[in-house]
Simulated assay, not measured.
Amino acid sequence: MLDDILRKQDGVITMDQAQKCGLSRHAVDRLVRSGHWQRRWRGVFFVADREFSDAARVRVAVLSNGATAVATGLTAAWWLGLTKFAPDVVEVTVPRVSNHIRRAGIHIRRRDLQPADIVEHNGLRVTSLPLTVVEAAVRPGGGPQLLDQALQRHTDLPKLWAAHLRNKGRWGSPRARMLLKAAEEGTRSAAERLFAKLLRQAGITGWKANQKLLGWEVDFLFEGDRLVVEVDGWAHHVDPETFRLDRIKQNALVRARYRVFRYTWIDLTQYEDRVIAEIRAR
């Protein structure tokens, strides 16, 4: 049982867990004195026979703040697989009425989370996926890209709105509302209108919108350059069938020796200078 816990928890174990496995406090102290275990914080230990990984670091940070602590923000996003890299500082949320010591490498937030917004994932308490998305998206290093990717692969807009509304007043709430509103309004047609506006503002000519080409309708056609530009809204507006047909259309255009540029709502709102530079260099 002890080996199973250590394997599942990246070499991290609490005193309570050790005692449930039959170890006394004296036995744990002997393991620490012998160097087999390391005391990472009061009541939290790490087995010294393995690498202290990012997962172990996050576990220690959360478990060392008590049974009610929850990984949140970008820490929760990484734990749930929404981001690739573990944050340098572990964000942990604890109940509003609590007393926790500030420590290097851990950012403590005090807020009472509802049961609907807490899940256990790989043996650690973290915010639910919808709340994680709306909170991580407004953290430095998150941004609209995280929200867009989550809508593509993991969740939908109504669930994100529900999590946001259950947690109004938290840090970053106004910014999260703006992102959700942008996602709600960022339909494909809105993205097309925005792209056309960017072209006009940049003085770029030689294009036509919503043209028939090889039996398909394309969003923007630069006929003289044999260039097609396809514009997508926020991910949740692209259902699986539309996604499939878009790829068939793109393959047909490429076979006919048309180049195809594809831009998303994120590209048009966050990286418009790059988009216009690519069109100018066509």
Rank of each mutant, 00 (worst) to 15 (best):
D3W: 10
I5C: 05
R7L: 04
G11Q: 05
Q17Y: 07
Q17R: 15
Q17L: 14
Q19S: 08
K20T: 03
C21A: 05
C21M: 03
L23Y: 05
R25L: 10
R25D: 02
H26V: 12
A27D: 04
A27M: 04
V28M: 06
L31G: 00
G35A: 03
G35D: 01
R42G: 05
R42E: 06
V47K: 09
A48F: 05
R50S: 05
E51V: 09
S53Q: 09
A55P: 08
A61P: 06
S64E: 11
T72W: 00
G73C: 13
A76C: 02
L82W: 06
T83D: 04
K84A: 11
P87N: 10
V89G: 01
V89N: 07
V89D: 01
V90H: 03
V90R: 09
E91M: 12
V92S: 07
T93L: 12
T93Y: 11
P95V: 12
P95S: 09
P95K: 13
V97L: 15
H100I: 11
H107K: 15
D112R: 09
L113F: 04
L113V: 03
P115N: 11
D117F: 11
I118G: 02
V119R: 09
H121Q: 03
H121F: 04
N122M: 08
G123N: 10
R125Y: 00
V126Q: 12
S128M: 01
S128Q: 00
L129G: 06
T132Q: 08
V133G: 00
V134T: 02
V134P: 04
E135T: 02
E135H: 02
V138L: 09
V138P: 04
V138C: 02
P140V: 00
G141T: 03
G142F: 02
G142L: 10
G143F: 05
D148H: 15
Q149N: 14
Q152D: 07
H154D: 11
T155F: 08
T155W: 10
L157A: 08
P158Q: 12
P158C: 07
K159W: 07
L160V: 14
A162S: 12
R166I: 06
R170N: 10
R170I: 13
W171I: 14
S173W: 13
R177W: 09
M178S: 13
M178Q: 15
K181Q: 14
A182P: 08
A183T: 12
E184G: 13
E185Y: 06
G186P: 10
E192V: 09
F195N: 02
A196L: 12
A196Y: 07
L199T: 00
Q201A: 11
G206V: 06
W207Q: 07
K208E: 07
A209P: 13
A209C: 10
A209M: 14
K212R: 15
G215Y: 00
F220H: 03
F220Q: 13
E223M: 07
E223K: 15
D225L: 10
R226L: 01
H236P: 00
V238N: 12
V238W: 06
V238A: 08
F243K: 15
F243R: 15
D246C: 06
L253R: 00
R257I: 07
Y258P: 04
V260K: 05
R262I: 08
T264Y: 05
I266V: 02
D267T: 01
T269Q: 02
Q270Y: 02
Y271W: 11
I276L: 11
I276M: 05
A277N: 10
I279L: 13
A281E: 13
R282L: 14
R282T: 01
